[in-house]
Simulated assay, not measured.
Amino acid sequence: MITLLISDLHLEEQRPDITRAFVHFLAGRARTAGALYILGDFFEAWIGDDAMTPFQASIAQALRELSDSGTAIYLMHGNRDFMLGQGFCRAAGCSLLADPTRVELGGEPVLLMHGDSLCTRDEAYMRLRRYLRHPLTLFILRNLPRRTREKLARKLRKESSTQTRMKAADIVDVTPEEVPRLMQEFGVRTLIHGHTHRPAVHRLQINGEPARRIVLGDWDKQGWALQVDDQGFQLAAFDFVPADSAAP
């Protein structure tokens, strides 16, 4: 049975190439999988299930068609779409995962994360993350007028982009010491996450035992997917289909 894992698509109407590639992925390759995991930042922004746009509803429908075909779909929050809730999941036929979540893949326990919580050296972001994810903050945000939420989302995205450019690369990347600590806590030798947009397979040693951290790639000029099957864990990029040949 094939399992596919993707993250960081940042879907938005302004990037029809990514949307087209994703819909093609769902109608083609994903139909061969028993499960599809989407590890956060699926959308560029999400201000609440009650504010779902026609574009976002079309993505939910595409996921629902895959779910109805027999592929189980699991979705995890990212730092851009942490307000995504059960309303979207019901429409899309998917299950919302906690971050982190321990699952069985390829016959072994694996820890799945979005990855932003591993960037502990970015203290300003970690403080903001704790504030935004607090249940009281989420309650307030979900009850703000839609226009206010839209303005706040634009402001946060702009500030995030500016601050990321200003910070040193090691500050916005994963804290190396946090990785083995968390893997030991959950009793795994494989960690899979996205967020950093730096796809790679990092080989580690934890208590003298081999381990690995697999970083999923973002979808921009090309797509990325991790496939788990009887051949093991295979991380690879793929080209987007041209607009005139989008049908699988």
Rank of each mutant, 00 (worst) to 15 (best):
Q56C: 02
L191F: 01
H77I: 06
T101F: 07
L144V: 05
L118W: 00
T175I: 04
S58Y: 14
D81S: 00
E159V: 00
L112Q: 04
A168I: 02
M166C: 02
D68H: 13
I59A: 08
I140M: 05
A91W: 01
I140S: 00
G187R: 15
F55V: 12
T120I: 13
D170P: 02
Q163E: 11
G107F: 10
S69W: 15
L97R: 05
V103Y: 04
N79A: 04
M126V: 01
I171F: 01
L152T: 10
K167W: 06
G93V: 12
G85F: 03
T101S: 13
L112W: 03
R80L: 04
R102H: 00
Y131C: 06
V110A: 04
S58H: 14
D81L: 04
G107W: 10
R90V: 15
T53M: 11
L84A: 02
K158S: 12
R165D: 08
M183T: 12
Y131M: 07
L141A: 08
A51E: 15
G85L: 10
E108Y: 05
R127T: 10
L128G: 00
I73P: 00
L136D: 12
N143C: 09
F186P: 00
E177H: 10
Q61H: 12
L138A: 05
M166W: 06
T162M: 15
Q61W: 08
